[in-house]
Design a protein around this nucleic acid. Structure first.
Length: 698
DNA sequence: ATTATATTCA
């Protein structure tokens, strides 16, 4: 061998050197046994040159050159040589199959395998892993089966690496017994064999089997490694088992695996799924090396746990650190824009997404549908939804929920039915969406029907969210007793659900029921601020000022304060917030003047202030003045002042819009000729030309 | 030659 390498070295040191035919022959012969002796692409080219010079027509030498080229993944060079062969020998086929595979050209790789078999050449252990990988990548199960059969006939299923590749392809097809069979047939197994089975079980939902195998592998003298751990961490993430997850984290640190990016991302994800965002951020921060995936993990963790601003901050930081965002980055961050209703930011990201060519990604388009719907652009949402290829249940649900929020119940229902026709089974979220749609449109019968049938038709038992939607449906419609009955059938009704009924008691002025409901709420949730505020308002509305004051007093004694009513509007990328009776906005006086002018025009159009919802013990004139202070009106007035004529005004309010403001905004939309979109805490109102899309029902 | 991590609706 040393002499062969000596020849090679001589050739390489002086490419112009003339080797004898004999030397080249010796060299090639040795290389047939040890192609690894060539250690660089340029050496491979030297070799090729020598072959061309001495034996250009020898299929064996040509094959050797192909083999050497393919070791360096040089597909084009390999192909050039391969095409010169009339009937390629086995080595040429094997090399080209592998070379295609390592270059990700799986279709061609498989085609060459088929050619090889047709030519009568017998494949061996060196090609099966590549071929199986190609089958796995292309999800070509039928060919995979055929290859498996071929492997068994050749007795190759005992071969370690081929066996591992076989396990891998079988786990990709879902959980079945053939995985275990292959695993047990193998005469030798290494950690990859174990890891592949474990990962397969984990991904196919066989969590217990996966964990049992992790315990078993110790018996075979193998310790879990980074592959094992990143395969099983998602299990604890799914089960929200932070104790087990922590245990793994300890093991990771003991074995020094914490520098591995896969492990780090899995840990970040595990902690955030277990609602431990702080831990997840800590793992991210101490992981020095970061990639798009670990950034995505931490960003998604923040967003999923409601830390939208932190998520956005990290997203910006990622861009600053020159980490290129991938499609997952966008689908992770978009919900932050949706929840914060930051339309402009959402639009900017949408532009970025289009520039990256990610707009055909279902995850991203579904998140865009949701973002546009939540930001009031239901038409844009519908347009994007219509363009989604391969819509999944989440895409449909986002659109249905969007319609629900905008009060388009009929559209929501027809989408829901269409989804079923396309063979997509609704899950509990989709049902929540359809019930919400019925609730926002007062469609009692339809809602009740979906609710009653959900268990038998979709196999989903009503959860809190479904009861909440139904309670809301009855409550809004004034069917307070029905709502009370329904909630009472629940095993453990929550304060939130009772509160839906309580707020209906206020609207429908039912003080007796309100007292009953309030006491139910305080039983389960004594600190429920909203309920105390509501109760005090209900008393005040009924003129029972003393009782109202008493509730307020209790609140003060308990040290709880209500969140002030506020509205906000985005103008030129800046969010302007208006809090009830707060005078701090720099244009406060101008806004007041504008509101007075509007008021005059409104009165000319027949507006009479409805002071029935002003819950202060003051005279009517003062009540009228208090209505001016309502935050949504001031936000709208500001919007009109600071945007060009005709621009749609979009305002968000943190609590339900009041009756008087609703009437006022209808008139304002007509007077100033603007479309005004107000989102309160449960839905959208589109005001245009004196009308509102909610049809007076909210 | 074969193995693993992150994403949309509530």
């Amino acid at each position: 061998m040393a002499s062969t390498l000596g020849v090679l070295e001589a050739l390489l040191r002086n490419p112009g050197a003339i080797a004898t035919k004999l030397e080249v022959k010796q060299l090639l012969k040795a290389l047939l046994k040890r192609p690894g002796a060539i250690t660089s692409a340029s050496e491979a080219k030297q070799l090729h040159a020598q072959i061309l010079k001495h034996n250009p027509s020898s299929p064996l030498y040509t094959s050797t050159a192909i083999c050497v080229y393919s070791n360096f993944k040089l597909l084009n060079q390999s192909l050039l040589l391969f095409k010169t062969l009339q009937s390629p020998p086995s080595l040429a086929y094997k090399s080209i199959i592998k070379c295609y595979a390592v270059n990700g050209r799986f279709v061609e790789s498989l085609a060459s395998f088929v050619d090889m078999r047709a030519s009568g050449n017998t494949p061996d252990h060196s090609v099966f892993p590549s071929v199986l990988k190609a089958c796995a990548f292309l999800l070509d199960l039928r060919l995979g089966e055929a290859v498996h059969g071929c492997i068994i006939r050749l007795g190759m299923d005992v071969h370690l690496i081929t066996g591992n590749a076989l396990i891998n392809i079988r786990t990709g097809a879902g959980a079945d017994s053939s995985v275990k069979k292959v695993f047990e047939t193998m005469t030798t197994r290494d950690i990859i064999s174990w890891n592949t089975v474990i990962a397969g079980n984990a991904q196919n939902g066989l969590h217990e089997d996966a964990l049992a195998m992790v315990r078993e592998m110790g018996g075979a003298g193998l310790k879990p490694d980074i592959f094992t751990l990143s395969a099983i961490l998602p299990i604890f993430a799914q089960y929200v088992d932070v104790d087990k997850g922590r245990e793994i984290h300890g093991y990771v640190i003991r074995y020094g695996f914490d520098k591995d990016l896969y492990v780090a991302s899995s840990l970040i994800n595990m902690y955030s799924r277990c609602a431990r965002v702080e831990d997840s951020i800590r793992v991210f921060k101490i992981t020095r090396q970061r990639d798009t995936i670990s950034w995505n993990s931490v960003i998604a963790g923040c967003v999923q746990n409601g830390m939208f601003d932190e998520g956005l901050r990290l997203f910006r930081q990622m861009l600053k650190d020159n980490v290129i965002p991938g499609s997952v980055s966008f689908s992770s961050i978009m919900p932050a824009c949706a929840h914060l209703t930051t339309l402009n930011l959402g639009k900017q990201l949408h532009g970025y997404i289009m520039r990256c060519g990610f707009d055909d990604n279902v995850f991203i388009s579904s998140s865009l549908v949701d973002m546009y719907a939540k930001c009031g652009h239901i038409r844009t949402a519908g347009w994007i939804f219509g363009g989604i290829k391969g819509r999944d249940m989440v895409s449909w649900t986002a659109m249905i929920m969007g319609c629900a929020l905008h009060g388009y119940a009929e559209d929501a229902i027809s989408l829901f039915e269409q989804m079923k026709l396309e063979g997509i089974r609704p899950n509990h979220v989709a049902i929540t969406a359809i019930l919400t749609a019925c609730s926002h449109a007062g469609m009692i019968d339809e809602g009740r029907r979906y609710f009653d049938r959900m268990t038998e038709e979709y196999g989903i038992r009503p959860g809190l969210e479904h009861y909440a939607a139904m309670a809301d449906l009855y409550s809004r419609k004034g069917k307070l007793n029905d709502a009370y009955q329904l909630i009472s059938t629940m095993t453990t009704p929550t304060g939130t659900i009772w509160s839906l009924l309580l707020s209906a008691c206020r609207v429908h002025k039912n003080v007796d029921l309100a007292e009953k409901v309030a006491s139910k709420i305080f039983e389960v949730d004594p600190e429920n601020i909203g309920a105390r505020v509501l109760l005090s308002n209900i008393y005040a509305n009924d003129g029972r000022w003393k009782e109202a004051a008493k509730v307020r007093m209790t609140m003060r004694n308990m040290g709880i304060r209500k969140n002030p009513a506020c509205s906000w509007i985005e103008v030129k990328n800046k969010i302007h917030t208006f809090i009830a009776d707060d005078k701090s906005h720099p244009l406060h006086d101008e806004i007041n003047i504008a509101l007075c002018e509007l008021q005059e025009k409104m009165e000319l159009a027949g507006y009479v202030a409805d002071t029935s919802e002003v819950l202060h013990d003051v005279d009517d004139e003062q009540k009228k003045y208090l209505l001016y202070g309502h935050s949504e009106r001031r936000a709208i007035a500001f919007g009109i002042m600071s945007t060009p004529a005709g621009t749609t005004i979009r305002v968000i309010k943190n609590i339900r819009i009041c009756v008087d403001c609703h009437t006022a905004i209808k008139l304002i939309s007509k007077i100033v000729g603007r479309e005004i979109v107000v989102r309160d805490n449960s839905r959208f109102h589109h005001f245009r030309d004196g009308e509102c899309s909610c049809g007076e029902y909210w």
